[in-house]
Amino acid sequence: MIQFTDVYKRYPSRYEALSGLSFHLKEAEMAFLTGHSGAGKSTLLKLIALIERSTHGQVLVNGQNLSRLSKGKVPYYRRQIGLVFQDHNLLHDRTVFDNVALPLVIEGEEHREIGRRVRASLDKVGLLSKERSLPIALSGGEQQRVGIARAVVNRPPILLADEPTGNLDPDLSRDIMQLFEQFNQVGVTVFIATHDLDLVQSMPHRQIAIQNGRIDSRMSL
């Protein structure tokens, strides 16, 4: 589903974030991406979401070669990927419902279908009763769950999360991770960047560790 082959990413400042990285994530697999801050976790996720492009090497996602994808096709490509961020990235002047509906509105989905899918998604993350609230009125854990509901509302085959539990206490973090596991069980490929090693080791999933822009094979399981 996600395949990196000898991928380099060099920034204009000559800083090399990724140096010859290769790995393969199969369809419906769930994996953690670990490493110290600055190891290149975020850069790797940005390459998958096409927020940035690799300097060298091949990135294949869902059968598409990302270096051959033209600028105009990037938005349509991104619709296949649900993105979850540490700082949620919610629109604060719109209700929870409108935030979760955004990907469907962008795709031009039918009005009735939007309502149905948004409520199903909010129900899944346990926030159906808060659909009319503004994000500011929710706790950090709830905001993160709104972000997850938005990421899965259009049923993307891939779910990427960048430090989704970074600001949450251990109990809430576990809840969030279990939520990701549930999506994985229905066939979604889930890839989560985190530095919370205790949490990662308590779960039976593959671990891809990177250090200085390379796969750290001693730490990877």
Partner: peptide, 15 residues
Amino acid sequence: SEIKIMKLVGATNRF
């Protein structure tokens, strides 16, 4: 920031 978020969830420039 709103435009960034919209781009992240796959909005086209036209939208």
